[in-house]
Structure formats: structure tokens, C-alpha cells
């Protein structure tokens, strides 16, 4: 198991980049009135067949040939269900995949959300050819990061240039702090 939800997001979003997605949309939404924390990872990668979708939450299923276990998705599902939430995957070959995990926000067995800034920063800087759209919402207050927008401003300067990399980290951290106003998820 992962110690925090943000690590599940990092792990499962890696599947999207490996599926050849050009755009991965990651949404984090905490809603205290509904008492839910909803995470959606949506990509336009190669997608899965209905048979693959059916088996993807089985830890002993993987498309890899080297080993016969695949724990990323089962971990994420278990974490959501442990907190009284739900989990679903929809996918279509050639169109993409959407993974939705709903957590019980105040449930005692819900893991902390953890360091989403590090997760997004790693994804963005390690996959420069993939665009990420990230939305973070807490009770209606939200911020958004679009790498497509940043790319346009940067005009060819790499996300891995130290100053840019630092800027992305600060953008994520400061805007999240502004939205959560000290309330930890």
C-alpha cells in the first residue's frame, strides 16, 4: 500500500503516460458538504479493451510480460474503498481511460492526500512531451495548472530549466496553500 493518496496518483498517472497519452487531466476535489474527496485521472492514451478493464483491478493481472503482478490500480481502489468510497474505470481503445476514485473525506481510514505538489511536479518535469491539466478544488475554491498554457508562454524553454522547474513547484505549492487556507486534506 501507498502511505498517501498523492503517491497513488503519481503511480496511476504513469500508466497514462505509458499509454501514449498526449493529455492527462488530473482533478482533485474536496467537498466537505458531501464529505468526499474525489480524484479523477483522465487520459487520451491508447485505452483498454473491455476485457482488460475487467481485469485491471485484479492484482494478478498485468499486460507486462516480465512479471505477472500489477499492483498500482488495485492499491488505489483499495485505498478508496477502505474509506467508504468508490472506484471506477472506464476506457475505450483508441480514445482513452478515465479512473475515478472517491474517498470518504472525514473517514478515519482515509489516507492523507499528501504532497500533490511533488506528484504533479514529477509528472510534469519527467514527461515533457505530455501535457497535463491539473485542477485542485476545495469547497468551490480552486486553481488550475495547464502545461499547454505554460508551454506557450515558454516558447521552447524546457520545464527542466532550473528556474522554470522551481517556478512550477512554487506555482503548485502557493496556489494550493491559497485554496486550502491551512486546512489539510
Amino acid at each position: 500500500m501507498m502511505p498517501e493518496i498523492s503517491l497513488n496518483v503519481l503511480d496511476v498517472a504513469e500508466n497514462s503516460t505509458r499509454a501514449g497519452a498526449s493529455l492527462v487531466t488530473i482533478t482533485v476535489e474536496a467537498d466537505t458538504s458531501k464529505d468526499t474527496l474525489t480524484i479523477v485521472i483522465d487520459d487520451n492514451g491508447c485505452g483498454m479493451t473491455p476485457e482488460q478493464v475487467e481485469h485491471v483491478t485484479d492484482p494478478f493481472f498485468t499486460t507486462r510480460k516480465t512479471r505477472r503482478v500489477g499492483l498500482g490500480v488495485p492499491f488505489f481502489k483499495l485505498a478508496a474503498e477502505m474509506s467508504g468510497g468508490s472506484f471506477s474505470i472506464t476506457s475505450e481503445p483508441g480514445v482513452g481511460t478515465t479512473v475515478t476514485a472517491v474517498f470518504g473525506l472525514s473517514h478515519v481510514d482515509r489516507m492523507p492526500l499528501g504532497d500533490m505538489t511533488s506528484t504533479m511536479h514529477s509528472l510534469i518535469t519527467m514527461h515533457e512531451d505530455t501535457d497535463f491539466l491539473y485542477r485542485y478544488t476545495y469547497d468551490g475554491d480552486s486553481f488550475e495548472l495547464s502545461t499547454a498554457e505554460m508551454r506557450e508562454v515558454l516558447g521552447g524553454v524546457s520545464f527542466n530549466e532550473p528556474e522554470v522547474s522551481q517556478y512550477i513547484r512554487e506555482f503548485l505549492r502557493e496556489n494550493e496553500a491559497e485554496v486550502t487556507r491551512g486546512r489539510t486534506i
Partner: peptide, 15 residues
């Protein structure tokens, strides 16, 4: 909110 204006300044320095 941290804005994209700052990013623009970085680009100009890096160009």
C-alpha cells in the same frame, strides 16, 4: 495566486 506573468519574465531571461 501565482500567475503566468512570472513565467514570462523567466522566459525573457532565458531566451
Amino acid at each position: 495566486m501565482k500567475s503566468l506573468a512570472e513565467l514570462k519574465a523567466i522566459r525573457e531571461r532565458m531566451q
